[in-house]
Write a protein that binds this DNA or RNA. Structure first.
Lengths: 314, 314
DNA sequence: TCAAAAGTGTTATCCTTACACCCATGT
DNA sequence: ACATGGGTGTAAGGATAACACTTTTGA
């Protein structure tokens, strides 16, 4: 009856640490220069740390000197081969993926790595200036011309994830989109992972920058989860400085969700949720009329500072 | 850089297998009679199984003879002590929790365990006949009279999870509710897990039936996830027989979500989503006018058989 | 005086909610 | 005939989407 007879494995923690500087969503990457970047990861040692999250905060503080705010578990990645490289033996590391948020101030202070814009790795996820041209010029043609035999639902998935139907509002489906591109062999990781993949070497796919191991998949999971969470929990404020203008808040939500929002409706939403309060101060360096500075209204009251911003797109 | 230096741990799989017979949501429990039931669990061996899900299906088929339909990972539970009992040494089993669905036919055919109604273990989650009386008569008084010092947000959480605010529609918050009850010492597991808990032995809490280890927490996670999923993916059909009446479908959604729905609105929702099609047959044994039998419209077309049923409560 | 960004009032539209009612069958 | 559950039309109310406009600053 006991599960203790399973073979010993090592368990790792891998974390997507997200910060927002201005209108650019960033994540903390390890590895500079030419090599494909990786997410911070470290072993989980239950003798030293009572829970995953405690272990996570400890190794992040030690390894990269960043203090984490909000953290949540994403998914546990255990596929065989997920941690192998080239011709290595397979150590089979099972990894518990986490999403963590940190404030813009921390994004400067990191060591042994740097924060990078996440849309460099997922250019098809940034719809703030409208539907990215690459979807129609590159992604859809290649997806539909993909040589390999796909499942019955393949066309349906392509349509839902990249088509121009009403479901295009699905900003949360970042992982599904990445997985579709991976399956169709359009990201570099697909070619790297499968030697037996008889993909034409003629045109390298290179949709977005690639990462080591399955870390881009973990990052896609993090993006999707964060975008979903925005809508029902006020997590956006964990990415904001203490005080902010309403436009800055809107730009922040737009940056994370990768969608443009309607100004008035966004304001109504924010005020309706009773989620911010005025500081009384003004921000004058915006270039036009000075903007009122607000702060997050975390102090309980009976106000529902627990809800998120159920944005509907522009 | 490598995570391979972490100490060896054993990894288990624990699964909440859900079925629906009539209007009763069930899960597969191991252990009959007096002992607290447990969820099926088994070791994960990466040498035999390439992924968690493959390993899961294998051990479930072998152990309890049930064929799984839909399966999805829930959460990985790794807190120290989660697998200890009474005075045991702590083997620290990390467990990857899964939700799996199976058809009503399978619910009869299981061996070495049986399917049990999940609301026996979460009576406060069944709102189909209105707000359960026990919330006002037992849960709220005890939560508010809880002796231990709680976090700053405690009252806020009580209000949000069990109060009568507008957020009461939060059927998905099953895990949060269970955790609140656990923290307040109102479920048997809380007393069992903490010897140092100076809880008055006078009145045993016993809110709902208890389970072994942290399996009730995993089940709560499964319930919440399934309820959420219903709203954006047509998973309900994985719990239905081939053909069903619209009322049966409505009762199924009501059973899972624990809420009563409005007949006409539910029908409009179903037809609007273009998610079912008529079989042409009728069900006559319902007691009144015969009902049309429908089936799930999985065949693609351009119809969006991918969406769920965004129900709003009665 | 003009550009640039903040901030607001108001309307059209759709979706949600809920009322009330009719239909087909078994007893 | 009537009880039982299946099945539908339609109107009220509220949330959403988008229009166009005014205000306040710096250059």
């Amino acid at each position: 009856m006991s599960a203790a007879s399973s073979p010993p494995l090592s368990i790792g923690l891998t974390v997507a640490i997200v910060a927002l500087v201005g209108e650019t969503p960033l994540f903390l990457a390890r590895g500079q220069g030419l090599a494909a970047p990786a997410l911070p990861y470290g072993p989980f040692d239950p003798l030293h740390h009572r829970t995953f999250e405690i272990g996570l905060r400890a190794f992040v503080a030690e390894q990269v000197g960043v203090t984490l705010g909000y953290a949540e578990q994403l998914y546990t990645f255990g596929d065989r081969g997920r941690h192998s490289r080239q011709g290595d033996a397979d150590p089979h590391v099972v990894s518990v993926g986490y999403l963590a948020l940190t404030r813009p101030e921390e994004a400067q202070a990191s060591v042994g790595g740097g924060f990078r814009p996440w849309y460099d790795f997922f250019p098809w996820e940034d719809w703030r200036s409208g539907r990215p041209a690459m979807i129609d010029s590159v992604i859809l043609p290649r997806l539909l011309a993909a040589p390999k035999p796909h499942g019955a639902r393949y066309i349906e998935r392509v349509q839902r994830l990249f088509g121009d139907g009403p479901d295009l509002a699905h900003d949360e489906a970042a992982l599904e989109r990445y997985e579709l591109l991976y399956e169709a062999g359009l990201v570099e990781e697909a070619a790297r992972d499968q030697r037996d993949n008889a993909m034409g070497d003629a045109q390298r796919p290179a949709l977005g920058r690639s990462m080591q191991f399955d870390h881009r998949r973990i990052l896609a999971t993090a993006i999707g989860r964060l975008r979903a969470k925005l809508k029902y929990r006020p997590v956006i404020f964990d990415l904001m400085p203490e005080a902010f203008t309403l436009t800055a808040l809107q730009r922040a939500v737009e940056a994370i969700s990768g969608r443009q929002l309607h100004k008035q409706n966004f304001r109504r939403l924010v005020f309706g949720a009773n989620i911010v309060e005025e500081t009384g101060r003004l921000e004058t360096s915006t270039g036009g009329r000075p903007a009122a500075l607000y702060r997050f209204r975390s102090q309980s009251g009976e106000a529902r500072a627990t809800s998120g911003l159920r944005v509907g797109w522009h």
